[in-house]
C-alpha cells in the first residue's frame, strides 16, 4: 500500500486517467491456458496488485474472479495483454450491455 502511494506522488501528472483504482473482473480461460500461471505473469509484467477472490477450474474452462489494484493505464494494459492471450475479460457484472 505504501509503495503504491509513493508511486502516485512521483507520477508526472495526476489526470483522471492515472489515478489508482480497483477493478473487479471475471477471467474465463480456454482449456489451453488453464495450466499457465497467467495471474502470476500479470502481476509481474504490469504494475498492478492481483487478488484472486474465487476460482474454479474444470477441463472445459477456468473461471477466476480477480481484483486488480493499480493505475488505470496499467490496468488497461494488463487487460489488453490478457485478451491477447485468449482470456475473456469481463467486468464483475459480466454482461452490462443488455438488449
Amino acid at each position: 500500500m505504501a509503495a503504491k502511494k509513493s508511486k502516485k506522488q512521483s507520477a508526472p501528472k495526476a489526470t483522471s486517467n492515472s489515478s489508482p483504482q480497483t477493478t473487479r473482473l471475471w477471467l474465463m480461460y480456454p482449456p489451453k491456458l488453464i495450466t499457465t500461471p497467467v495471474i502470476w505473469e500479470v502481476g509481474h509484467k504490469f504494475n498492478v496488485m492481483t487478488n484472486v477472490r474465487q476460482a474454479s477450474v474444470t477441463d472445459e474452462i477456468g473461471v477466476v474472479c480477480l481484483e486488480l489494484d493499480g493505475q488505470r493505464p496499467e490496468i488497461k494494459a494488463a487487460i489488453k495483454w490478457l485478451e491477447k492471450l485468449g482470456v475473456k475479460v469481463e467486468p464483475v457484472e459480466i454482461n452490462v450491455i443488455e438488449s
Binding site: 457484472e93 452490462v96 450491455i97
Partner: peptide, 13 residues
C-alpha cells in the same frame, strides 16, 4: 470492441 464497451459501461456505472 463489444467487450471494451461492456467494461467501460461497468466503469461508468
Amino acid at each position: 470492441h463489444y467487450d471494451e464497451v461492456n467494461r467501460l459501461c461497468a466503469e461508468i456505472a
